[in-house]
Design a protein around this nucleic acid. Structure first.
Lengths: 251, 251
DNA sequence: GCCCCTATGTGGGATACCGTACAGACAACG
DNA sequence: CGTTGTCTGTACGGTATCCCACATAGGGGC
């Protein structure tokens, strides 16, 4: 948290061409996102879009009976609020901060205006949306076919990719909500990973000891999504006036 | 199959403003889509987009080990090939004809050109994409939390909505592939529905006897998606020169 | 140091679904 | 009219996950 905040920490903002970035940047507000904060409620009108930098946001779908499942994750690689420019104005899902941190907020109208110029911003956002769709569909299949333990690995790796550290703050209860399973199921899976010395667990703090080991234990879904994100978003033009620091996507 | 074919049978085509429709219509090819035909393979380049009229297409995701799951359905309400204009050029999913019929095919480049005019076609297609995203996310949650029987009901209702008849041609094996479960699981669920006199089953032919009964047996997922489709696509402007025949979405 | 709350671990019974194997039944085709 | 292949029904054991109940343990406030 001592690192200075910069809009370039968000890959989409960093990928904006200079002209577009300069139009938007005066309106970007840095905000803090505490763990558990609800940024969008299901069905609510979107007033802002969010560009996470150090925070991670979970798109959760909640059923009538309270059961839930995570359908996608948004971190410093993306943006929260795609339904704004897709035309719906509302989302059918809830957005919850899943890892505390910071992000930039932008007024919904301003983003819409920029989108409607039908220039590079539109193309960039649609590409990102396409990548997000891949993540959602992969989640659908993963929910059907893979074990809790595999999904826990995926969940941890998705989190690691969006953080610079290898220690994660998430209770088993929170993870259970995201995976749409019981807390006890997570306890068991986490116990297995701990016995295999892949992670160390302690009251809401997970330390990843062996990332390559996690990558061996995870299902194919993780890599598929990662590769698709890279394919769709790695060749996007970067702003020419500075370089991206830290977590740039691996080639 | 004796009904004359018209582009207006596809709701998206019917919703195009006159000018846009006139630009595209000379290039629309009516094609027949036999059951089981693969229109897109996972990872393949898209040469055409498809506007189904009487056919129904399944977006299937196939895992490395051959296991599969349906992530969305496209019928006369939509279009197949969104990743074309979203920027990816390829899809990570397979598109299979799940109910034989007809549809119109359009050259990929022509659709892209029209999309890039950034006019009503772009807005219409993005709205449709948003609706499709809802369907995908709902499928993800449904896969996690609902029983095979509920999902079978959903599958049948999705099919009915896209056909004018109430008899469906699908083997239990095909359904099992789409739901991502064993064939025997479908046999059992279908047996239950048959004993409850909701459907009648016979070697690949399902006759729906009691649609209201199916709607009572299905999970919430069906209605959520339907409502969202209506919300996003019901108020789209229709072509002013003719009326839509048949299967218009119920209000 | 003590208390309470939250987080985690454990266990036993129920259930939904899977994997496999096989039997009957209908249709198409010779 | 029989053969063959496809489609459907059934049965049995195995397993992952669920549901419920309860035990344990660390941490913060007092």
């Amino acid at each position: 948290m001592l690192t200075p905040h910069s809009t370039t920490q968000n890959h989409l903002l960093a990928a904006l061409p200079t002209a577009e970035f300069n139009r938007l940047s005066p309106h970007l507000e840095l905000i803090s996102m505490p763990l558990g904060e609800v940024l969008y409620e299901s069905g609510g009108q979107l007033q802002h879009v969010y560009f996470p930098t150090t925070s991670i946001i979970s798109l959760l779908y909640v059923l009538e009976d309270g059961a839930s499942a995570e359908i996608a994750v948004v971190g410093n690689e993306g943006l929260l609020g795609i339904s704004l420019f897709m035309g719906g104005d509302t989302t059918p899902s809830r957005a919850v901060v899943r890892s505390a941190g910071y992000g930039y907020r932008l007024n919904a109208q301003l983003l819409k205006q920029e989108f409607n110029r039908a220039g590079p911003v539109l193309r960039l956002l649609l590409r990102y949306t396409q990548a997000l769709i891949t993540q959602m569909t992969q989640t659908a299949v993963c929910n059907r076919h893979h074990s809790i333990e595999q999904q826990l690995c995926r969940c941890l790796l998705l989190t690691l990719d969006r953080l610079s550290s290898n220690s994660v703050t998430m209770t088993q209860d929170l993870i259970a909500n995201m995976l749409g399973v019981r807390r006890e199921g997570v306890t068991e899976a986490a116990g297995n990973l701990q016995r295999a010395e892949l992670i160390r667990y302690n009251r809401g703090h997970i330390e990843v000891l062996d990332r390559p080991g996690l990558e061996k234990a995870v299902c194919e879904c993780y890599a598929v999504v990662k590769i698709e994100f890279d394919r769709l978003l790695s060749d996007i033009p970067r702003v020419d006036t500075f370089h991206i620091v830290g977590q740039s996507p691996s080639p």
